[in-house]
């Protein structure tokens, strides 16, 4: 897949917004990560990062195909989502430990598919606990429980 096409697209979006910002790319095992930097990129992280999520969705629909295997494109600004993901990972591991220690089921959510994936993978690193997504909407809750 062509990361240059995505960088060009993001630059066109930035120009259209009329903000001073730059696009950085980092290739990771999970796929390319694009981070928009510059003080004015702050407009994208307002309202709990809603504009950023919207931009991610549009990039997925426009350029998401043609990625090999499980790779996916990740759009960030000022490393906002990166920070959020780290927090979510920590919370997931904390709750997994709590489930293990107390034997009580723990819930985390509602989360979107991307966020749930982070939780499932983080909890998988803790032995003796399992995860399951419950609910039937786009957003579901992840149930963390002691392995029976």
């Amino acid at each position: 897949m062509n990361t240059t096409a995505i960088v060009d697209f993001l630059n066109r979006v930035i120009t259209a917004f009329g903000i001073e910002a730059a696009v950085g790319v980092e290739e990771t095992a999970d796929g390319p990560r694009f981070n928009i930097t510059g003080d004015e990129a702050e407009v994208l992280v307002r309202h709990r990062g809603e504009p950023l999520k919207a931009l991610q969705h549009i990039v997925d629909s426009s350029y998401g195909r043609g990625l090999e295997g499980e790779k996916r494109v990740f759009i960030d600004a000022l490393e906002y989502r990166k920070g959020k993901d780290i927090e979510l990972r920590q919370m997931a591991k904390f709750l997994a430990q709590k489930a293990k220690d107390s034997g009580l089921d723990q819930q985390l959510g509602p989360l979107n598919p991307y966020e749930r994936r982070i939780v499932h993978m983080a909890v998988a690193e803790v032995s003796g606990v399992t995860t399951e997504s419950i609910g039937d909407a786009f957003s579901k809750t992840v149930l963390i429980q002691l392995r029976k």
Binding site: A16, F17, G18, I19, V43, L44, R46, E50, P51, K53, A54, L55, H57, I58, S61, F138
Partner: peptide
């Protein structure tokens, strides 16, 4: 699907308008 792209377009249009 489920109007998700339309919702994303509206969000970004509003963000641009906000400015």
């Amino acid at each position: 699907r489920q109007g998700r792209t339309a919702a994303a377009l509206r969000t970004l249009a509003s963000t641009a308008g906000e400015k």
